[in-house]
Amino acid sequence: MHEVSLAIEIVRTIVDAATANGALRVESAEIELGDLTCVDPETLRFAFEVARKDTVAANCVLHIHPVALVVRCAACGFEGAQSREELFCPDCEQSSLSILKGRELRVLSIEVEDLQDA
Protein backbone atom coordinates (compact mmCIF):
# COMPACT_ATOMS: atom_id res chain seq x y z
CA MET A 1 0.00 0.00 0.00
CA HIS A 2 2.90 2.43 -0.46
CA GLU A 3 0.91 3.59 -3.50
CA VAL A 4 -0.66 6.13 -1.10
CA SER A 5 2.76 7.63 -0.28
CA LEU A 6 3.64 7.67 -3.98
CA ALA A 7 0.32 9.31 -4.92
CA ILE A 8 0.87 12.06 -2.34
CA GLU A 9 4.36 12.68 -3.78
CA ILE A 10 2.99 12.74 -7.34
CA VAL A 11 0.35 15.33 -6.36
CA ARG A 12 2.99 17.40 -4.53
CA THR A 13 5.27 17.33 -7.61
CA ILE A 14 2.42 18.26 -9.96
CA VAL A 15 1.12 21.08 -7.73
CA ASP A 16 4.63 22.52 -7.25
CA ALA A 17 5.28 22.58 -11.01
CA ALA A 18 1.84 24.05 -11.76
CA THR A 19 2.19 26.75 -9.10
CA ALA A 20 5.71 27.64 -10.25
CA ASN A 21 4.33 28.15 -13.76
CA GLY A 22 1.28 30.13 -12.62
CA ALA A 23 -1.21 27.48 -13.72
CA LEU A 24 -4.65 27.36 -12.07
CA ARG A 25 -5.75 23.98 -13.37
CA VAL A 26 -3.87 20.79 -14.24
CA GLU A 27 -5.63 18.78 -16.96
CA SER A 28 -3.42 15.70 -17.09
CA ALA A 29 -0.12 14.24 -15.94
CA GLU A 30 2.18 11.70 -17.60
CA ILE A 31 4.05 9.32 -15.32
CA GLU A 32 6.44 6.42 -15.96
CA LEU A 33 6.12 3.21 -13.95
CA GLY A 34 8.82 0.57 -14.34
CA ASP A 35 7.95 -3.14 -14.51
CA LEU A 36 10.36 -3.92 -11.69
CA THR A 37 8.72 -1.62 -9.16
CA CYS A 38 6.18 -3.28 -6.91
CA VAL A 39 3.51 -0.69 -7.66
CA ASP A 40 0.00 -1.66 -8.67
CA PRO A 41 -1.21 0.86 -11.29
CA GLU A 42 -4.89 0.60 -10.32
CA THR A 43 -4.13 1.11 -6.64
CA LEU A 44 -1.94 4.07 -7.56
CA ARG A 45 -4.73 5.54 -9.66
CA PHE A 46 -7.22 5.16 -6.80
CA ALA A 47 -4.81 6.73 -4.29
CA PHE A 48 -4.11 9.58 -6.72
CA GLU A 49 -7.82 10.35 -7.00
CA VAL A 50 -7.96 10.76 -3.23
CA ALA A 51 -4.70 12.70 -2.93
CA ARG A 52 -5.51 15.23 -5.67
CA LYS A 53 -8.66 16.56 -3.89
CA ASP A 54 -8.74 20.31 -3.14
CA THR A 55 -5.63 21.06 -5.20
CA VAL A 56 -5.07 22.60 -8.65
CA ALA A 57 -4.85 18.96 -9.79
CA ALA A 58 -8.37 18.09 -8.54
CA ASN A 59 -9.48 17.12 -12.06
CA CYS A 60 -6.12 15.89 -13.32
CA VAL A 61 -6.22 12.71 -15.42
CA LEU A 62 -3.30 10.42 -14.68
CA HIS A 63 -1.66 8.72 -17.69
CA ILE A 64 0.51 5.83 -16.54
CA HIS A 65 3.17 4.66 -19.02
CA PRO A 66 4.60 1.26 -18.14
CA VAL A 67 8.35 0.81 -18.74
CA ALA A 68 9.40 -2.71 -19.69
CA LEU A 69 12.39 -4.33 -18.05
CA VAL A 70 15.67 -3.93 -19.99
CA VAL A 71 18.75 -5.76 -18.77
CA ARG A 72 22.45 -5.93 -19.62
CA CYS A 73 24.37 -9.18 -19.19
CA ALA A 74 27.87 -8.77 -17.75
CA ALA A 75 28.85 -12.23 -19.07
CA CYS A 76 28.01 -11.93 -22.80
CA GLY A 77 27.13 -8.26 -23.26
CA PHE A 78 23.49 -8.87 -24.21
CA GLU A 79 21.29 -5.80 -23.89
CA GLY A 80 17.54 -6.08 -24.26
CA ALA A 81 14.16 -6.93 -22.86
CA GLN A 82 13.51 -9.69 -20.36
CA SER A 83 10.45 -10.55 -18.28
CA ARG A 84 10.60 -10.05 -14.54
CA GLU A 85 9.72 -13.71 -14.01
CA GLU A 86 12.85 -14.82 -15.87
CA LEU A 87 15.71 -12.80 -14.55
CA PHE A 88 18.54 -14.47 -16.43
CA CYS A 89 20.18 -13.60 -19.74
CA PRO A 90 18.04 -14.79 -22.71
CA ASP A 91 21.25 -15.29 -24.76
CA CYS A 92 23.76 -17.05 -22.50
CA GLU A 93 21.43 -17.92 -19.58
CA GLN A 94 23.87 -16.50 -17.04
CA SER A 95 22.42 -14.49 -14.19
CA SER A 96 24.93 -11.64 -14.07
CA LEU A 97 22.40 -8.99 -15.03
CA SER A 98 22.26 -5.31 -14.36
CA ILE A 99 18.96 -3.50 -14.76
CA LEU A 100 18.98 -0.68 -17.32
CA LYS A 101 15.26 0.08 -17.32
CA GLY A 102 12.33 -1.05 -15.21
CA ARG A 103 12.79 0.71 -11.89
CA GLU A 104 11.30 4.05 -13.04
CA LEU A 105 8.91 5.99 -10.84
CA ARG A 106 8.90 9.36 -12.61
CA VAL A 107 6.61 12.29 -13.31
CA LEU A 108 7.34 13.27 -16.93
CA SER A 109 5.11 16.26 -17.64
CA ILE A 110 1.74 17.91 -17.05
CA GLU A 111 -0.80 19.70 -19.25
CA VAL A 112 -2.16 22.88 -17.67
CA GLU A 113 -4.74 25.53 -18.44
CA ASP A 114 -5.41 29.08 -17.28
CA LEU A 115 -1.88 30.38 -17.08
CA GLN A 116 -1.74 33.56 -15.03
CA ASP A 117 0.28 36.44 -16.40
CA ALA A 118 3.58 36.35 -14.63
Binding site: L6, E9, I10, R12, T13, I14, A17, A18, N21, A23, E27, I31, L105, R106, V107, L108, S109, I110, E111, V112, E113, L115
Partner: peptide, 15 residues
Protein backbone atom coordinates in the same frame (compact mmCIF):
# COMPACT_ATOMS: atom_id res chain seq x y z
CA UNK B 1 -3.44 24.02 -23.12
CA UNK B 2 0.19 24.22 -22.17
CA UNK B 3 2.67 21.43 -21.46
CA UNK B 4 5.12 21.68 -18.59
CA UNK B 5 8.04 19.26 -18.56
CA UNK B 6 8.88 17.93 -15.08
CA UNK B 7 11.12 14.82 -15.45
CA UNK B 8 11.32 14.22 -11.73
CA UNK B 9 11.56 11.01 -9.72
CA UNK B 10 8.44 10.52 -7.64
CA UNK B 11 10.63 9.62 -4.69
CA UNK B 12 13.01 12.57 -5.22
CA UNK B 13 12.11 14.31 -1.95
CA UNK B 14 12.57 11.07 -0.02
CA UNK B 15 15.92 10.49 -1.78
Amino acid sequence: MHEISIESDILASNE
